[in-house]
Amino acid sequence: MDPYKVLGVTPETSDDDVKRAYRELARKYHPDNYVNNPLADLAEARMKEINEAYDQIMSQRSGRAGGASQQQGYGGAQGGASANPIYSQIRAAINAGNLAMAEEMLQRCPQRDAEWYFLMGSVYYRKGWFDEAGRAYEQACQMDASNAEYRNALNMLNMSGGYGGYRPMATMSACDCCTQLMCLSCCCNCCGNGC
């Protein structure tokens, strides 16, 4: 398969335009856009194809021989084979959407290497905790600057403007909710107009 056709560019296209085409396609086919959608599998396959094409083009342009040596994933640990069997299980849990199990397994890992930070960033990303994901991806990139999977995840997060994302509050009980409603009612009544 021609990687230029996958991205809709030509060999004469500038690096910036190749990156721009890649970003547009990545936004369009990102798996998070297809959650609970019957097209999710097709979007994931297309995203993998887009990542591989981009990696191949950039590898060729940087003078490295061959193409992408591993499947790349963005923010979800979709690609990349791990030598560590625990990390392979964590990747499978993330891909299955079992983020609680993946996070628990990561917390039990005694080592904190680059892949650990990448996978933790992927868990955070899937949760919508973009600030934490960004910090974890940055740590992974600092620890292993040559890993394209880690760089792609961080770049995609930065390009999507993901920082400052949703972070859920601590759990709230029904009593907390009632207390807040009573306080709100008192405030409205104390201001003179009532509710």
Rank of each mutant, 00 (worst) to 15 (best):
Ser62Tyr: 05
Gly63Met: 04
Gly63Phe: 03
Arg64Leu: 13
Ala65Cys: 06
Ala65Thr: 07
Ala65Trp: 07
Ala65Ser: 12
Gly66Ala: 01
Gly67Asp: 08
Gly67Phe: 01
Ala68Leu: 03
Ser69Cys: 06
Gln70Lys: 08
Gln71Ile: 14
Gly73Cys: 10
Tyr74Trp: 12
Tyr74Ala: 11
Gly75Thr: 09
Gly75Leu: 13
Gly76Gln: 14
Ala77Gln: 09
Ala77Leu: 12
Gln78Leu: 14
Gly79His: 12
Gly79Lys: 12
Gly80Asn: 05
Gly80Trp: 09
Gly80Asp: 01
Ala81Phe: 11
Ser82Val: 02
Ala83Ser: 15
Pro85Glu: 08
Pro85Val: 01
Ile86Asn: 12
Ser88Ala: 14
Gln89Phe: 08
Ile90Leu: 01
Ile90Ala: 10
Arg91Phe: 04
Ala92Ser: 12
Ala93His: 02
Ala93Lys: 13
Ile94Gly: 00
Asn95Arg: 15
Asn95Ile: 12
Ala96Phe: 00
Ala96Asn: 05
Gly97Gln: 07
Gly97Pro: 00
Leu99Ala: 02
Met101Trp: 09
Ala102Cys: 05
Ala102Pro: 03
Glu103Ile: 00
Glu103Asp: 14
Glu104His: 04
Met105Ile: 01
Leu106Ala: 11
Leu106Cys: 11
Arg108Leu: 10
Arg108Thr: 09
Arg108Pro: 10
Arg108His: 10
Pro110Met: 09
Pro110Trp: 07
Pro110His: 08
Pro110Gly: 11
Gln111Phe: 13
Gln111Gly: 06
Gln111Pro: 02
Arg112Ile: 06
Asp113Arg: 02
Asp113Tyr: 03
Ala114Val: 08
Ala114Met: 05
Trp116Ser: 02
Tyr117Pro: 00
Phe118Arg: 07
Phe118His: 12
Leu119Ser: 00
Leu119Lys: 01
Met120Gln: 11
Met120Phe: 11
Gly121Thr: 12
Tyr124Asn: 05
Tyr124Leu: 05
Tyr125Pro: 01
Tyr125Leu: 13
Arg126Phe: 00
Lys127Gln: 15
Lys127Met: 13
Gly128Arg: 09
Gly128Thr: 05
Asp131Glu: 04
